[in-house]
Design a protein around this nucleic acid. Structure first.
Lengths: 352, 352
DNA sequence: TTGAAAGCGCTAACAC
DNA sequence: GTGTTAGCGCTTTCAA
C-alpha cells in the first residue's frame, strides 16, 4: 500500500546548487535580489533534477488570501442562472482550500441601474479576479475597462463582448447553437411556419444575449428552408393570459406543420401552453436543461433541448482565475466554447 | 488582494477542548486510545467551531503513498482505449500531488490469457485500488473476487459486471444507448433495411461489451419499426477486401432507404466504404468521438455519432478512488452513468 | 545578495 | 490515555 517518494524538493535543489532554500525560492518566484550566477546555477539544477514545486506545501506556507467575485443576474431556484450559481458554489468549495474565497453578487437583468450599482461596489473594494455574465453591453464594457486598468483579470461567462482584454471566456458558441437549433427543428420536415417566441421586453432594446443565436437560426432557415414562414411572437412571460392570447393568434391561421422555438431557457412556457391546448404534432425545440424543460421533454411537449453545462462553465471560469492567481498559470485557451448537448426523451435522463 | 483567514485549525479545537492536538488528531482518525470524555468534548468542539481539517496540510504531514492501477485493453493512438488512457494520465497528474501514483497496465482484449496474466501480476503486488475495464466476464469476476477478499477497492469503467462488491462504476448506460441509437437511425424515416455491421471475432463468443447496446437497438426497432429488415454483417476489420465484399453483398439487394450502424467505435470503417462506393442517401450512425469518426461526420459519410467522454469517465474513476484513499470519502454514487452525447456536423466541432 | 529560522496545519513517534 | 515534539515542503521575515 505504501510506495516510495521520489519527488525532489526545494532542499535538494538548494543543496545541489550550493545555495540556501531562500535563494532557490527567490529565483523560483522572481523576487529579484539574486546574483546572476546563483540564479543560473539554480535554474540548471532545477532543470537537471526536474524539480516541481509542491503546490500544497506552497499554499500552506504562504497564507495568501484571494477573493474572486462573480457578477451574475439574480436567480430563483431552478432557473437558468441558478445553475450557474451552483457551479460557482461548487468551485468555491474547492477554491476555499487554496485560500480563495468566491463571492456571488447579483443584479436585476432588467435594470441597468442595479447592474451599475453592483459594478461600483465591486470596483470600490477590488477583488483579485472577477467573473461576469454580461447582459448590458455598454455598462459591462465600462466596468471591465476599469477592472483592466486596475489590473484585475476578468472572465466572461455565458456570452462575451467585443473587447479583448478579457482573461478568458466560457460559454456556448451562440451563433452555432442557433444554426444547430434550426437544423434540429427543420431538417427533414417541411414546416409551414415556425413561431419564434420572444420576451416582450427584449423589444425594448436591452441588449439581448441570444441575438447571435437567433441570427444563426435565421441564416440556416434562409439557406435551407426559404419557404418556411418565420413569425415572431412577443409575450409577457409573467402573464399566462398574454401567452395564451398571443399564441392562439399565432396558431390560428396555420394548417400544416408548425414549429415553435425560443432562444432563451424558457421553452417550458410554450410546453405548458401546448399541453393546455392539447395540440398535436407541433415541433417544439428550446434551450437549456432546466428541470421544467426536462419535464416537458419527458411529457412529450418539447422534442429537443440544446443544452450546456452552465454549472461546469461557471466552475471552469472560477478555476481558471484560481489557477492564475495561485499558480500564476496562464490560461490554456482564452475562448472556451462549451459543447452543445442535444437532448431528447431518450437521453435526457442521463444528463446530470 | 488579501483577505483574512477565518478557518479554524486543529489547534483551536485542541485549546477549546482543553486537550492537545494529538488527542484531537486521534479522535479525528479514530486511532483509539482516547477516553470517552475527551472524545466527546473534542467532537462537540469540532461541531461548534465547524472545524474542517486542512486537507493539504494533512497530506503534507502524513507522507503516505498510494498506488492505483488501471487495467484496460491495449490501444494505439486515436482508438477508443487511447481516450481512456488519456483520462487516466490526466488524473494521474493531479493524483501525484496527493501522493498517489497511477499506473496503466494493458492486455490484449482478444486474448484471455493475456488478461489472466495481467491480473496475476496485479494480485502479486497489491495496489491500494484498481480500475478495470472488463472484457472477459468470467476472468474479471474471478479477478475482482480476489481483490475484494484482499480489501482492495475496484471500480469498473466502460461496462460493468453483475457482481456488486465494486466500489463504483463509470460508463454509458449501454442498453439505453442502443435504444437512443435506433431512434436516431430510424425515427421519421421509413427505412427498408438496416445493416448491423459487426466484427467477425465477436461471433466467437468472446464476451462482447456492446451486447446490451445491440439489445436496446433491437428492442426499439421491434417496437417502433417492425417492418424494417435488420441484417447482421460480420466483417474482418483488418481486411479491406473482406469489408468491401461483405458490404457489397449486403447492399446488393436493396433499393430503398438503407441504414448502417455499428455498436462499437469503428463506424469509420463503414464511412470509408461508403466514400469509396460513392453511395448517396445511406443513413450512417455510430458510436464514439474518435478523430476518424469525427472526420467522417465532417465529410458527410456518418450522420450521427453517439459519444461519451470516456477520458472524463476514466479520470472520474481514478478520482473516486483517490478521494476514498486519501480522505476516506465514501463514493457519492455507486453507478455513474455518463451522459450520451448526440453529435452531428453542426455540433461535432465543439466536442472537446 | 544571501542564509538562517520560524511557522503554515497536520501527522506520528515517543515519552510520560 | 495524553501531551510533546519533530518534521512534511515551502514562504517569508530578519540579520548578516
Amino acid at each position: 500500500m505504501v510506495g516510495k517518494d521520489n519527488r525532489v524538493t526545494i532542499n535538494d535543489v538548494a543543496k545541489m546548487a550550493g545555495v540556501s532554500k531562500g535563494t532557490v525560492d527567490r529565483v523560483l518566484h522572481d523576487r529579484g535580489e539574486v546574483s546572476p550566477k546563483s540564479r543560473e546555477k539554480v535554474l540548471k539544477v532545477i532543470e537537471e533534477l526536474g524539480y516541481k514545486p509542491n503546490f500544497y506545501a506552497s499554499i500552506l506556507a504562504s497564507q495568501k488570501k484571494h477573493r474572486i467575485v462573480c457578477v451574475i443576474p439574480e436567480y430563483v431556484s431552478g432557473d437558468f442562472w441558478s445553475l450557474t450559481a451552483r457551479g460557482v458554489e461548487e468551485s468555491a468549495e474547492t477554491s476555499s482550500r487554496f485560500g480563495v474565497t468566491v463571492e456571488v453578487v447579483t443584479y436585476d437583468q432588467y435594470d441597468v441601474e442595479s447592474f451599475r450599482h453592483v459594478c461600483n461596489r465591486v470596483l470600490a473594494d477590488l477583488p483579485s479576479g472577477v467573473v461576469v455574465a454580461p447582459m448590458f453591453r455598454v455598462e459591462t464594457l465600462n466596468f471591465v475597462k476599469k477592472l483592466d486598468a486596475s489590473g484585475v483579470p476578468y472572465v466572461y461567462i455565458d456570452s462575451k463582448l467585443e473587447d479583448d482584454s478579457y482573461f478568458a471566456y466560457f460559454g456556448m458558441p451562440m451563433f452555432q447553437s442557433g444554426y444547430l437549433c434550426a437544423d434540429i427543428m427543420a431538417d427533414g420536415r417541411s414546416l409551414e411556419k415556425i413561431l419564434v417566441v420572444r420576451i416582450e421586453r427584449d423589444k425594448m432594446g436591452y441588449s439581448d444575449p441570444t441575438v447571435a443565436r437567433r441570427t444563426g437560426f435565421m441564416e440556416y432557415m434562409a439557406a435551407h428552408c426559404p419557404d418556411t414562414q418565420i413569425v415572431n411572437v412577443f409575450i409577457d412571460p409573467k402573464s399566462p393570459e398574454d401567452i395564451r392570447r398571443k399564441l392562439d393568434e399565432a396558431f390560428a391561421g396555420a394548417s400544416g406543420n408548425i414549429g415553435v422555438v425560443m432562444f432563451n431557457s424558457r421553452i417550458h412556457i410554450v410546453a405548458e401552453y401546448i399541453r393546455e391546448r392539447r395540440f398535436q404534432g407541433v415541433r417544439v425545440v428550446g434551450f437549456d436543461a432546466l428541470e421544467k424543460n426536462l419535464d416537458a421533454i419527458r411529457s412529450g411537449h418539447v422534442h429537443v433541448l440544446i443544452a450546456q453545462h452552465s454549472d461546469r462553465q461557471a466552475a471552469a471560469a472560477v478555476n481558471a482565475l484560481v489557477d492564475n492567481l495561485i499558480h500564476g498559470e496562464p490560461v490554456h485557451k482564452k475562448d472556451n466554447y462549451t459543447q452543445m448537448d442535444i437532448l431528447n426523451r431518450f437521453n435526457c435522463d442521463y444528463y446530470m
